[in-house]
C-alpha cells in the first residue's frame, strides 16, 4: 500500500530564465489597477500587499517606479490615532500584521518620521499577554506569527526594551515540537511558515540556542520534493512561498547547503507567468504579488546576480537592515 509522494511535474516548456522586466511591469500594473477585481476585493490586506510589491521592486532596484509620496500618505492615513496600530487600509481596524508591513515599508524608504512611532511601540507592547505570547489585535487571537511581528516591528524601531523578551521567548519555546519545528501555539503541528516566524523571532531576540538545530534542519531539508520545489509540511504539495519560509529558516540555521539549489531554482523559475509576469504558487496557476516577492527573495538567497541580497530574518533588502544597524543573530555554517 505504498503511498506515492505528493508532488507535481514541471511542464517541459517552463521558463528557464528570470523574466525580470515582466515582473516589474506586473507589480506596477497591480498597484495601479483600482478597477481591477482582484485588487479591489483585497483591500483587507492592502498594507501587506504593498509591502510584498514594494520589497520585490526594491530587491531588483526598481523602487522608484512607484510614487513614494502616495505610499506614505496612505500609510499615514492607516495609523489609528487612539491605539497607535496600523490597519490594512483606510477605515479598517489596526492589526499587528499590517503594523509590521507599514513599518517595513517605511524602513525601506527611510521615512519612519511620517508616523507616530511611539504610538506603534505602545500598540505592540499592549498586545503582549502575561504568558509572553502576543495577540494579533485586541480581540485575543494568539499565534507565534504575532510573536514574530511584534519583535520584528520593535527591532526595526529599536525599542525591544518595552516588552518582556524573556517571557516572549518562553512562549515560543513552548511551541517547539517533537520534530524540532514550531507551530502556531503550544502543541500545534510544525509548519514551515511558523518555523520561519519562530526562527525569525529567535534570531531577533538572539536566542537561537533553544533550537534543536540539526533535527529541525533535517525536517526542513526533507521539504524538498523531486520537482525541486519545497512544501510546508510532510505530504503536501510544493509552493513558491515555501521556497522562502524553508530557505530563510535554513539560512538562519546556517544549513542552506542541505537542499539542492539548482533544483529549487528550476522550480521557482517554472512558476513564472510568461504572459502577465509575476510568480504563482505552482506552474500554471494565477500569479500574485505575494508569490512574486517570495520567488524573488528565495532566488536572492540562492544567489542571483540581478537580485539584491535579502535579509533572511526580516525579508527586506540586506542594505536596509545594514543601514539601520538592526541587530539579529544568524548561525554560521559549521
Amino acid at each position: 500500500m505504498a503511498i506515492p509522494i505528493k508532488d507535481i511535474k514541471l511542464p517541459e516548456d517552463s521558463p528557464k530564465e528570470l523574466l525580470l522586466d515582466k515582473h516589474v511591469e506586473f507589480i506596477k500594473r497591480y498597484g495601479k489597477s483600482d478597477d481591477d477585481y482582484e485588487f479591489g476585493m483585497s483591500d483587507y490586506l492592502r498594507m501587506s500587499g504593498m509591502y510584498w510589491g514594494l520589497t520585490a521592486l526594491d530587491l531588483v532596484d526598481k523602487l522608484n517606479i512607484i510614487p513614494q509620496s502616495e505610499v506614505i500618505a496612505f500609510i499615514k492615513q492607516c495609523q489609528d490615532p487612539q491605539t497607535g496600530g496600523i490597519s490594512a487600509c483606510i477605515n479598517h481596524d489596526p492589526h499587528l500584521l499590517h503594523t509590521l508591513s507599514a513599518v517595513q515599508i517605511l524602513c525601506i524608504y527611510n521615512r519612519l518620521d511620517v508616523i507616530d512611532t511611539n504610538g506603534v511601540v505602545t500598540y505592540v507592547s499592549s498586545l503582549q499577554l502575561p504568558d509572553g505570547s502576543f495577540t494579533g489585535d485586541k480581540w485575543g487571537e494568539v499565534d507565534t506569527r504575532f510573536s514574530f511581528c511584534a519583535v520584528a516591528t520593535l527591532a526595526l524601531l529599536n525599542r525591544l526594551d518595552v516588552i518582556d523578551v524573556n517571557k516572549a521567548v518562553s512562549f515560543v519555546e513552548s511551541c517547539k515540537n517533537f520534530d524540532g519545528g514550531f507551530g502556531s501555539r503550544p502543541f500545534s503541528e510544525s509548519h514551515a511558515g511558523l518555523v520561519y516566524c519562530c526562527l525569525g523571532f529567535l534570531s531577533i531576540t538572539s536566542r537561537l540556542d533553544i533550537v534543536d538545530r540539526d533535527t529541525l534542519a533535517w525536517w526542513l531539508c526533507e521539504r524538498q520534493l523531486p520537482s525541486g520545489g519545497l512544501n510546508g509540511r510532510p505530504e503536501k504539495l510544493p509552493d513558491v512561498c515555501y521556497s522562502w519560509w524553508v530557505l530563510s529558516s535554513l539560512t538562519i540555521l546556517g544549513r542552506l547547503h542541505w537542499i539542492s539549489a539548482p533544483a529549487l531554482k528550476n522550480f521557482i523559475l517554472a512558476c513564472q507567468d510568461v504572459e502577465t509576469g509575476g510568480f504563482s504558487d505552482r506552474p500554471g496557476d494565477v500569479a500574485d504579488p505575494y508569490h512574486t516577492l517570495f520567488g524573488f527573495a528565495a532566488l536572492s538567497l540562492l544567489g542571483f546576480d540581478c537580485i539584491k541580497p535579502v535579509n533572511p530574518t526580516f525579508c527586506m533588502p540586506q542594505c536596509v537592515i545594514d543601514k539601520l544597524k538592526i541587530m539579529h543573530q544568524l548561525l554560521e555554517n559549521k
Partner: peptide
C-alpha cells in the same frame, strides 16, 4: 491565492 488554476 493558492492553487488557483489559470483558465484560458
Amino acid at each position: 491565492m493558492h492553487g488557483r488554476l489559470k483558465v484560458r
